[in-house]
Amino acid sequence: MSAAPLLEVRDASVRFGGVHALRGAELSVSTGSLCGLIGPNGSGKSTLVNVISRLTKLTGGALLMDGDEIDSLSADRARAAGIARTFQTVRLLPSMDVLANVMLGGATHFAQRSVAVNWLWPPRRANANRTARQAALVALERVGMAAHAHARPQALPYGQQRRVEIARALASRPRLLLLDEPTAGMSHHEREEVGDLLMELRREGLTQVLVEHDLAMIHRVCDHAHALNFGRVIASGSTQEVAADPGVREAYLGHGSSGERAQDSERAQESGPPESPAKVSQ
């Protein structure tokens, strides 16, 4: 916690037409930490992840990495600069096998170079394919999916597909990993395993931001947490402090949680009961 912040979000606002998805959100993620992001649906968590990965432009405020402003960076440059992410839904490409999917994550340097040269200069092609393959195999090994390298992603169980997505994000050896609800729809056992994986990655020094509904999971794996509601950070600190915060409890218990739970139970068909608001008090 005492380390210098790798990522800082200052007074971030995002407006889509008349909708304020973020209004002055503040966030600081120190190097090597695992930072949890919680909040009800529509509170701005995913928007914040989209802002950090540069898919969404800020309407106001600033985004800093290592103290340098990065809010003018495009999403592809952000990935090249070391910000990798996963998505809320599985977004593996069904037309290629698991290894090929992960190789795309391991070729970020190649992807940033001239298309014409990448196309017509054989040594660069060969080199890129080889290094991407190696990086992908290492990443698949890392998440325990090496045995499925040649499977089609859609033939895998949901939990394993999500692991492949994490591997794709890891393949470029990012400095910051953004995980948007990586355990949504997983069984309890799968959640535990992913939690273990994230903690291992943290021990190896990878800085992570974890968006998660399950407060027990946040509590188990994260160093600190930020709670969002209505596009603002309403609480931040240790996971206990955030969970005990009256504003956070109000946000989870007070409104709209039925709709959110309906969605959760849809995702969690095989994973037992949906998130209960009672977890807030744990």
Partner: peptide
């Protein structure tokens, strides 16, 4: 959008 987050300047 996925391609963008894979560093591809789409």
């Amino acid at each position: 959008p996925l391609a963008l987050t894979l560093a591809i300047d789409t």
